[in-house]
Amino acid sequence: MSELIPQAEAGPIVEALCERFGVSGALFENYSLYMGSKGKVYMRNTHDSEARNAAVIGLHIATVAGAVKPSTNFVQIFGRHFCRNVIPVTSTEARELIAGLNEFPATSALENVTDGYVALSCDGQSFLCGFLKNGVVQNMLPKSRRRVLEFV
């Protein structure tokens, strides 16, 4: 079951995501946020239809557990608007990460990137979320979405 998050509580979640990736809050204007189990935040277009005993409402965009952790969906969908904390990788590296490589050494000269959640990008497309700490990116791609790609 998911519950609508009141505006006063949704604001800080949106602000945390916008602040981290340098995106405009306007992107969220036509959406409502819902709280599911285990701190999962779902985003749905604003519509007054009644959601009856819904298993899932909208799209999982983040998880709140102390900090706000962006989801893979959030990075893939809104990544084109990000202007900081994006790390470009080669197609070979992208293939390895999507297949399940757990850690990845970030190059030293990264501009506009600080420790914390980052988007990994290949050929201009943000494709997964990682966590950067001390020059190493931890792969945050859920195991259920890891797969072997031949063509990247």
Partner: peptide, 9 residues
Amino acid sequence: GIFNATITN
């Protein structure tokens, strides 16, 4: 990337 869906069971 579907935002308008509600899954019911």
